[in-house]
């Protein structure tokens, strides 16, 4: 199955794949973002491969890591074929400034909520999503919690005596 996927991508999208990774026996392809929609559609509609199940979309932030050179954000598409009982990953690197990628909601309904969650938590914009709004965090919350520069801490209680000492943005 592994070779089949590699060949399929090499044949149909020769310039899309950056590299292939087989860590822990899990196949994943790093691809250029602009090909994502077409590749997903091709995998979904191909009669032989039939990757008809979008299991998950998740996002990573490589802020402050050596990997950031390739692009700060990473979006991982987890595709599954019910026919072949096989799973592989499509990974896309996105720049720190205005990370955006094509939405796959027109291919799978499940992408609707999954993309909304990625947008809400990581601040990645999905172009063509019909209803891109917050899903789990409250409306008042500014920022994207899963980004590495978003502080994970408690809020320092503000009293009259320490009012001047507190920074405006609590880190």
């Amino acid at each position: 199955m592994k070779e089949k996927l590699t060949d399929f991508l090499r044949l149909n999208f020769p310039e899309a794949v950056i590299r292939e990774d087989n860590f822990c026996d899990q196949q994943s392809f790093y691809i250029h973002g602009e090909y994502l929609f077409d590749i997903c559609r091709a995998f979904q509609s191909d009669k032989e491969l039939e990757f008809n199940f979008l299991m998950d979309i998740c996002s990573l932030d490589w802020w402050g890591q050596p990997d950031e050179a390739e692009g700060r954000f990473e979006v991982v598409y987890n595709l599954y074929s019910l026919k072949h009982r096989y799973r592989f990953f499509l990974k896309v690197r996105l720049p720190a400034k205005e990370p955006k990628i094509d939405s796959v909601t027109s291919l799978w309904h499940t992408a609707d909520w999954l993309e909304r969650e990625v947008y809400d938590m990581m601040g990645i914009f999905f172009v063509g999503h019909p209803d891109l709004r917050k899903i789990v965090t409250p409306d008042e919350l500014d920022g994207y919690p899963l980004r590495k520069d978003f502080p994970l801490t408690y809020e320092v209680p503000q009293f009259s005596y320490n009012k001047d000492q507190l920074p405006e943005v609590i880190l």
Binding site: M55, D56, C58, L60, D61, Q65, D67, V76, N78, H109, T110, D112, W113, L114, E117, L146
Partner: peptide
């Protein structure tokens, strides 16, 4: 299907732990 996507950057803490929650997806 409950899935854990764990990304390690070689340190002693997870770089990212993503849970694929069945309830969340089913509710959609």
């Amino acid at each position: 299907e409950l899935g854990y996507y764990i990304s390690s950057d070689g340190s002693n803490k997870p770089h990212r732990m993503r849970v694929r929650p069945p309830s969340f997806v089913n509710l959609s």
